[in-house]
Each structure stands twice: as C-alpha cells, then as structure tokens.
Amino acid sequence: MNENEKKPEGQGEQDTRYMFFTRREFVVGAVAGAAAGSVITGAMMKGGKPAAVDPAKAAGEKRIKSPSYIAVDYAKCTGCRNCEVECALFHEKKLDLSKSRIKVYYFNPPVDVPSLCAKCNDAPCIKACPEKVGALVKDKTTGAVLLDEKKCIACWACIEPCAKDRANVIRKSKDEKVVVGICDLCGGDPSCVTGCPEGALSIVPVYQDGRYFAAKPEQIAQAVAKNLYKAARGNE
C-alpha cells in the first residue's frame, strides 16, 4: 500500500457504526432532535433575522447554570467558521485556529459540520487521564470538561477514547505540549454560540440520547446529506 492509498484519519470504519441511522430512525431522530434544538431538516432557508453577532460582547454573563452542551443545527450552518474564530479569539486572544475547540468540516455533497466536544456524561477522556495527573475535571455547574494545561503531561491518553468512541475532537497542540479540543463552554457563555451569525449553535441542557450525540463529522455529514439532498437518492 503506498501513501496515496492509505485511508485518511477518521474516514475508516464509519459505515457499520452508522447503520443505526436508518431512514425511518433518521426522521424520528430529527424530530426528537428538533425538540432539543438539534435540527437536521432543510427548512431553515426562509428569511428570518439571525441571532445578532457581537464579538465584542463581554463574557461576564453566565448563561449556563446547569450541565449543558452545544447543539448544532446542521441545516443552518453555512460553513463560515466564525465559531472557530470566536473560540480562538476568546481563549487565545488572537486568531490561532490551530487551538480552536470547535472545527467546521466541509463535505461533498455540500454539507457543513461544526464538530466539538460533547461534554459526555461519562467523560471517557477524564477516565483515561492518569489518576496522579488529574488534568481533566468535570465542571459541576456547566458539565464542561476542564483542562488544566499546567497539569497536562502530554501523554495523549485522553485522545484515544474520544477518537474511538466519541466525536474525535481531542488532538495534540501544534507544539505537542498539551491536548487541545476540549471545550470549556467559555466558563458559561460560549463565544461560538454568540458569534454564530446563523443561529446554528445553541445551548441545551444535557440530553445525550440524540442521534447526533458525539458522532464524528463524517457520520453526521452522511446523515445530513441524505436528508438534504433527497432527490439525488433516487428510488430508495
């Protein structure tokens, strides 16, 4: 096998795991998701004022008062990546996208998938972090996983369970000194949510049985594409 034939990261065994998105279940899932703000349908085109973007907004107001995660309306996302930018500006105070904790992936046929930490209840990343290191803890108020960069020993133990069983968002930093990609919900007022010009991101209380919960971007893309481009599916 030469280098060109190697399967790219994260695009390997998606299909079997993805089988549970049968069409029927998908529709049900989409409806259930709608209640939680995680809408997959394509009915978002028509007019309507988007949520106001105010990147200068101070993060003083803590909107998250109970364990929550950030739900994505994939039909509303246009792939502008303002969420990535706002995340970097909030945490790094400059535009270093390599440190963004949210990433927007583009797929063909055209689908945009913001991918971010799901704040899993059972947090396999926390479990994987060696006990004596203890760099990861759960924030009891927001439910976010908090990384103490000073404690992180760059052992990468947390990367694997997320990559294997969850959304695959944890990665090595560019300088390979700490992990990046774990979302701290900006302490209670997520900058990606306020910075999204499309209103595609929303804060919802923890609700972890949704179809798209902690799914990898390519899996979500496949399901969203199937739903958006119905005509291309032929006589399914």
Binding site: A75, N82, D112, L228, Y229, K230
Partner: peptide, 20 residues
C-alpha cells in the same frame, strides 16, 4: 437547499440546491 459562506462571512450569498 442551503446557504454557504466564505471564511468568516455572514452574508452567505452562495446557494446550494437540488432539482427535485
């Protein structure tokens, strides 16, 4: 079917559609 944007643009003037 959906809008698309260039990097950081809130205008999303690109429209993607399908013939049904």
């Amino acid at each position: 079917v959906k809008h698309r944007s260039c990097f950081q643009c809130p205008l999303h003037c690109m429209k993607i559609g399908q013939v049904s």
